[in-house]
Simulated scan of single mutants.
Amino acid sequence: MEGDILAGVSRETRDRLVAYADLLTRWNARINLVSPRDLVHLWSRHIADSLQLASRIPSGARLVDMGSGGGFPGLVIAMATDAQVTLIESDQRKAAFLREASRVAGVRTRVIATRIEAADVAPVDVVTARALAPLPQLLQWSARFLNSEGFCLFLKGKNADEELKAANADWRMAVTRIPSRTDADGVILELSDIRRVTDHNPASGR
């Protein structure tokens, strides 16, 4: 499985991901970075799921990953792209892991160990999240990070349509659904032109 996942990546990215996976496996005995029963599926369920976002990231993009946890998807994206990645993780132990994993993998990231709503980050091009919160909450958090042309990439499961419907009560956005390559029920939601309903200006036609 690992070989199949890494077939399309550069040798540099391959080496980074292998070093990262080894470190995560060792740290997982002390910190619950992934469920112990999921550890056997680390490459297929976590790394590959995160890696599929890499092709959606513009070259040199500034990116914020919310609730990075064990590094999914933000740290994996940092290893596979030239994006300037900021990882937000409130758990101090997980934040320590993210710093060490970045060092071991040879990538430069900024790790902010605080709650998402308290994070101080300049406007970015892309905001990502995986298995973090329902879409309305993700939009509430991410709106303050995005620049005027920015967009979000959220990995979602079978309830994506229900979450979109709930989000439409307070938000308007352009939605692109991209089928997940790792989960038959999964989808990548690419959301752009994100606006609160209260910001809607009928005169603008938007």
Rank of each mutant, 00 (worst) to 15 (best):
L139A: 02
L146T: 03
D120T: 15
W141M: 06
S142R: 01
W141V: 02
T114H: 04
P136Y: 10
A133P: 15
S142Y: 02
I116K: 06
F145S: 00
A118S: 15
P123Y: 06
N147H: 13
R115S: 11
E149Q: 13
P123Q: 09
P134R: 12
L132I: 06
F145E: 01
Q137Y: 12
T128V: 08
L153S: 06
E117C: 14
L135P: 10
L135Y: 12
R130V: 11
R130S: 10
R115H: 13
F154T: 07
N147K: 10
A113V: 07
S148C: 09
F151R: 04
F151T: 03
V126S: 00
A119G: 09
F145T: 02
L139C: 04
L135A: 11
R115D: 10
S142M: 02
Q140R: 14
S142K: 03
P134D: 13
E149V: 00
S148A: 15
D120M: 14
G150R: 08
F151E: 06
W141E: 02
D125P: 00
S142I: 01
S148V: 13
F154H: 05
C152N: 12
I112H: 00
V127T: 09
E149A: 10
F154V: 08
I116G: 07
T128L: 05
C152Q: 10
L155T: 06
W141R: 02
N147M: 01
P123T: 07
A131E: 11
A131S: 13
I116L: 14
T128P: 03
F145L: 01
I112E: 08
C152V: 08
A131I: 11
E117N: 14
Q140F: 09
A129G: 11
A113F: 10
V121A: 06
A133D: 14
W141I: 01
F145I: 01
L139H: 04
W141C: 00
L138N: 03
P134H: 12
S142T: 04
L139N: 04
V127C: 07
W141D: 01
V127S: 03
S142Q: 01
L138H: 00
L155S: 08
D125Y: 00
L138A: 03
A118L: 14
L132R: 03
L146C: 07
I116R: 06
T128Q: 07
G150W: 06
S142P: 04
L153R: 04
I116P: 05
W141S: 05
A118R: 15
R130Q: 10
V126Q: 00
L138C: 05
P134N: 12
Q137K: 15
Q140E: 15
L135Q: 12
D125S: 00
L155V: 07
P136K: 11
D125F: 01
V126T: 00
A119F: 06
C152T: 07
V127Y: 03
T128W: 04
Q137E: 15
V127M: 06
L153H: 03
T128G: 00
A129N: 12
G150E: 08
A143P: 07
E117I: 13
P134S: 12
A113C: 14
L135E: 11
A129M: 11
F145A: 02
V126A: 02
W141L: 04
L155C: 05
R144M: 10
S142D: 02
P123L: 07
W141H: 04
L132P: 09
T114W: 01
V124N: 07
A131K: 10
A119S: 09
A118P: 01
V121M: 07
L135F: 13
V127H: 06
P123R: 08
L146I: 03
L139V: 02
